[in-house]
Design a protein around this nucleic acid. Structure first.
Lengths: 250, 250
DNA sequence: CGTCTCATTGATCCGCCTCAATAGCTGTGG
DNA sequence: CCACAGCTATTGAGGCGGATCAATGAGACG
């Protein structure tokens, strides 16, 4: 896996991703707590298994992960991708077991904060609590937006949606999105995210390339050529989307 | 719409639903706040429209509602059903606009608590805060469980899942679920929940009836005959499910 | 009794899945 | 250096699950 390379050849993006929270606005003790529990990970490791004990909150610092859930038949659905800056609490309603399986897609760093520490942090820092709430609302909005398309949308709509979601999350909801970015996913994984087979992901991407909407180079390096067309395909209201889906401001 | 009837002819269920929180455990001021903001609603009214202002939290006291989201083409996906005892905060990441459209399915009562009041309540009552967190985790678990099936499951699996979800939510996660219950939904609405056409919902239910898994009488009165078969169809682990999906204990 | 809504059933169609074969790329060992 | 294996993308062929269209019941209601 060329995860290292993946991140290495876009240094400006990486640095932006690695510190999505504005340093100046965050108390030093928060940063200290995060780095205290920080650990590095490789691509392809499993951090959490569905149903097993989980008493920590994950704050992603660098790299990609995904949280997934499976049917007994081996069918896997990716619930969400975890990008730098994301906070994920994978515990289920009982508060102590993991609601899904957490696996890394690239190498990177994550801060694994024990729940009671995290809770205490939130309690004593109101602005952090509010930030966490907004992050959570944004996460939920993405989940719902995708569910809408799983239920009612075509393959083309789902893929277009996912690309725009990645695009916007990667550049932190900036006003001028990059039109070129790399997704550290196989088509199989993208399919598991969108409820499609890898074969159909491939065909759908090919069709978009044929229609000059975008280009795809080696292993999911995407270049958007016609953003308006992509947005139209996705069925998104661009304004509303940016507001609802992305939260990176502390 | 015979919503009134719907609720009237199963009094024992209604009374259980109407007060899912154990009264004894809840401070009187909480109950007081809820009743202060309580209002009745009819079947078929719209309480909230996607994108419009929303500065309140809804605590369902009696009756059913649903929260939905639409594609411009008029395609609607029901995000969740709101049952008595549910707390729903429909605000999006910006904290002030509704993330979906909230409509009532039956008549009933709901407490519309202004957000700042709700927030204050949670802050001063730790156990209420924890309860709200568990409710939210359970809601999320249901969402994810359904998304897994939207992405990877057959129509039969989705319908079986939904029936079991309703069953367990209606009897509050009790150990001995009722095998007979009424769902105040049209097949169209159930389809909008599961990403299926109403026609296919009908066919799927008919097949289950033919296979002696269940019976359906007038307008969605369901009688489960073979719970094991239904659970098998749903792809659920029953134990794990009850724990993760339902939260009614305060 | 006419209307309206909803469930039911049949017929047909199509989007996506599955299976299968090929090709390209990467890493590995001889 | 080549040969090989492993993995992913690509493309074709064929099949199926569920959508769509359409017609008929069947209650509920005015």
């Amino acid at each position: 896996m060329s995860a290292q390379l993946l991140l290495k050849d876009r240094p400006q993006l990486v640095s932006k991703q690695a510190l999505p929270l504005k340093k100046a606005d965050i108390a030093k003790d928060f940063q200290a707590v995060l780095s205290q529990y920080a650990r590095a990970f490789d691509a392809g490791s499993t951090l959490l298994i569905e149903g097993e004990a989980c008493k920590a909150v994950f704050v992603q610092m660098d790299g990609w992960m995904h949280l997934s859930k499976s049917l007994e038949g081996g069918q896997t659905q990716i619930i969400e991708f975890v990008l730098p800056g994301d906070v994920i609490d994978a515990s289920s309603a009982d508060g102590s077991t993991a609601s899904g399986t957490l696996e890394t897609l690239t190498c990177g760093r994550v801060s694994v904060v024990p729940r009671h520490i995290w809770t205490a942090l939130l309690r004593e820092r109101v602005e952090l609590h509010r930030f966490a709430q907004r992050m959570d609302a944004a996460r939920q909005a993405r989940l719902v937006e995708r569910m809408l398309r799983l239920g009612k949308g075509s393959a083309e709509m789902r893929v277009a949606y996912a690309l725009i979601e990645f695009l916007m999350r990667l550049d932190g909801g900036g006003v001028r999105p990059q039109s070129r970015f790399r997704i550290p996913l196989t088509q199989q994984q993208l399919g598991d995210y969108l409820g499609l087979s890898s074969v159909h992901i491939c065909r759908t991407l090919r069709r978009m390339v044929r229609n000059d909407v975008l280009d795809v180079r080696d292993h999911m390096e995407v270049q958007i050529n016609d953003m308006d067309a992509l947005v139209a395909l996705s069925g998104l209201d661009r304004q509303a989307f940016r507001k609802a889906i992305v939260t990176r401001q502390f």
